[in-house]
Write a protein that binds this DNA or RNA. Structure first.
Length: 240
DNA sequence: AAAATCCCCAACCGCGGGGAA
DNA sequence: ATTCCCCGCGGTTGGGGATTT
């Protein structure tokens, strides 16, 4: 039982990519564009599975990738974003142009984790090591723990917003996503890009995004001025 | 200089979501 | 309504270079 394999494993290469494979992949994507990863390997003459091709392209061959050291500012941004989003590497990567989710994930696990530990902070919760998470005191916490049913019900707002402002006043956490009421979806790329600033009218509450919308946890829908627009959004002060 | 250990990161794996049939 | 397929994500692995003994 179980899911069928993503490709015919018997006739696919694994492991490190060769220069020739890279060249074939780049040439094919330049000519035909991204997408249709399943059929790409055959069309491009590669003995690789589609997933492998996609990964190679996204993480290594795609133009515009920044390779090399992260700056101190990058570090701090990643730490802030991780504190709010948790291990949502793709979302975090969306905030760091030229960086991939895989790269950030690796960098987190190899460098930033230790950095936090050396500061006496738990890399998972961002709390002082040994301390029990408690956001009500404005103490940092992991995003997984940031939105809990009771937090939402008490005052009708996501505590993430106030937490966010308390903790990262300089951080634009525009986590805009589409409505759940039949309104057209904005392009996925806009969901977490700085470009979708205050001008973006279709916003949604974070609790819904986190799957809490159907529970009592989310009271955003009760808000009279948010009948069509539910939001978790905080604009930058003075732009990006 | 050689062996052992550590560390980094590219790549793989399995799962879940969403759309099409 | 259900099943299937594809894509994308996050967790994990393992090869190989760097460092230490």
């Amino acid at each position: 039982m179980g899911r069928s394999p993503c490709c015919e494993k018997a006739h696919t290469n694994k492991g490190a990519w060769t220069k020739e494979e890279d060249q074939r992949l780049v040439a094919y994507i330049k000519a035909h564009g991204e997408g249709c990863w399943r059929s790409l390997p055959k069309a491009a003459g590669l003995l690789r599975c589609g997933k492998s091709c996609r990964l190679r392209w996204i993480n290594y061959l795609r133009p515009g990738l920044k390779r090399g050291n992260f700056t101190e500012e990058d570090d701090e941004l990643i730490i802030k974003l991780h504190g709010l989003l948790g291990n949502k590497w793709s979302l975090i990567a969306g905030r760091l142009p030229g960086r991939t989710d895989n790269e950030i994930k690796n960098y987190w696990n190899t460098h930033i984790r230790r950095k936090l530990i050396s500061r006496g902070l738990d890399p998972k919760t961002h709390l002082p090591i040994g301390r029990v998470p408690c956001h009500r005191q404005g103490i940092p916490m992991a995003a997984d723990e940031a939105v809990k049913p009771n937090d939402m019900a008490e005052d009708g707002h996501s505590s993430v917003t106030s937490m966010d402002e308390e903790r990262c006043p300089d951080l634009n956490l525009d986590l805009t996503i589409s409505l759940h009421g039949g309104a057209p979806k904005p392009p996925a790329a806009e969901a977490a890009t700085p470009a979708s600033g205050p001008a973006c009218a279709q916003l949604i509450c974070l609790c819904y995004h986190l799957g809490l919308q159907t529970s009592e946890a989310c009271s955003c829908q009760a808000s009279p001025d948010l009948q069509h627009v539910l939001r978790f959004y905080r604009p930058l002060e003075g732009g990006q």
